[in-house]
Every structure is written in C-alpha cells, then in structure tokens.
Write a protein that binds this DNA or RNA. Sequence first.
DNA 1: CACAAGGCGTAGA
DNA 2: ATCTACGCCTTGT
Length: 103
Amino acid sequence: MSFRKRVYGTAERVPSGKVISYSGLAGLAGSLGAARAVGTLMAKNPYPGTSPGRVPCHRVVRSDGSPGGFTGPGGPARKRDLLEKEGIEFICGKIPKRFFVRS
DNA sequence: CACAAGGCGTAGA
DNA sequence: ATCTACGCCTTGT
C-alpha cells in the first residue's frame, strides 16, 4: 500500500463541512510529518470532487487555517468557494479550528 | 541511483 | 502580526 493511496483514502473520509490539515492527513495516512508530501500528492490528485473515486482535496487546508493552494480547476478561489458551500466559515481569510477533523 | 520540485510546518527575527 | 530560513516526506524524471 503506497503512501499515496492511503492519503487519498483518508482524504475521502473527511466529512463535508469539515477540513483537515496537510500535516494531520499525513499522520492519519501513516507518515507523520509528511505534510509536504501530501501537498505534492494533492497537487496531482485525480480530480477534486465529493463523489466516490474522487478526492475532496479542497477539504485539505494548512494547519494555521489558511486555505493553502489549489491546482485544480478554478484555482484557490474555487477552493474557497467549495468550502464555503460545504458550510466552512472563513474568518479573516482563515478557517477556525473547530472545522478541523481532529485525531 | 541521484536530483529537483512541491497546495507544508515550525521557529526566530 | 509579517517575513525569511531550514527541515520534512514522497513522487516523477
């Protein structure tokens, strides 16, 4: 089982209306501290979407609450939009900790 | 096998 | 609070 697959699997189980940090995702995926790697994987992920088989990479944000980047269609703007549609609130451009899935 | 790059994280100034 | 520097892990060439 490659790290890559675990990350996507873990990302898919993040519920709508919540987000998780790159770092946290890395940890849940089995490689604590591989936040950077997660970012790389998300950057090349199949396609952002909530349907099965796709990866809701827009729910993966930085640990400090910043949206982070987004290479998918629409860029960062799209990411923010998707999150807001799922109920995430942006306070001064950042996401409150209560929206994070914690482990 | 070696190297470069990437949606990050943390610490210090 | 903002910015720079350095470290981290995995993937693709």
